[in-house]
Amino acid sequence: MDLSRVKNPQLCQKKIDLLAKIPTDLTFNYQLTLDYHGVTTTLNSSRESILKLVRQLVPPSWIANRPSDMKLELNVCSIKDFNIVNMDWENEESPECLTGELDNYEIAIQRDFAGKMMGNTIYAIINEDMADGFFNVLRWFMPRKLLNIKKTVLHSSCVVINDKASFFLGHSGYGKSTLTTLVDDKLVLGDDMNILYQHQDSYQSQGAALGGLYDNKSILDLSFPVGAFYWLCKSSENKVEKMGAAQAYRKFISSCANVFWNETDPQVASAMMSLSLDVVKRYPFYNLYFSLNKGFWKYVK
């Protein structure tokens, strides 16, 4: 792990040292089982307050132990278990998530969480008074786990138009979130992370429940068939142009969130590539030149 990439390497090292202490120094007595987009996630926590936080974040229907092809054990403890206050825990300017290895575990250190994973067992330290840390833990490992059941998390905004979901992809700062403030009465599934998965002979979309402004519980239970994909380009005028297959493939694969395909199982990378190819062949992709006003909607089919 390259500690020179953060402003407070001492804090980063402290988080690594804390990870080495769990689970030995703690007990995880509180349990909740979630169906997280088809991943059966057994959440064990050191405090009741962590379960309370999670209950607030997911729809009640997700708190269930359903049969699935993917099972995880997520063990979460609190900074309070180590007598750390939030001001000290998040005393880091960089939002970057550093990854590395510790005692055969894959580890991740970010401003608001520290986590380690071996196989399908994950340990994490968060501040349960804020949702961000829990969401960032999920963002770190869940996209790769979802790929195992042929679901991908797209860094995107997703808006329902004529009962079909349009995905808006693009670099940070190119208008994905802004676009969701210009929707009038259209339904927004998510402004940051959305799930795409195959259902029978087509693909469906759903809010990811991985943080963002639109992760409210009533929306998370809804899913819609996919209509089209738009890559946002900054422009002084609104217009669209059809994208070639090769470009569409690159844009789609660059939008698959937190897969770390360079560091992970080649099978996961392969699964992502075949899913990307299938999506590109089935659905239209457009460059959407977006001037940050509502005029672009007439170009969105």
Binding site: G244, A245, A246, Y249, R250, I253, M273
Partner: peptide, 8 residues
């Protein structure tokens, strides 16, 4: 794709 190679 469409006779073009995309390499990761």
């Amino acid at each position: 794709l469409d006779e073009k190679i995309v390499i990761l």
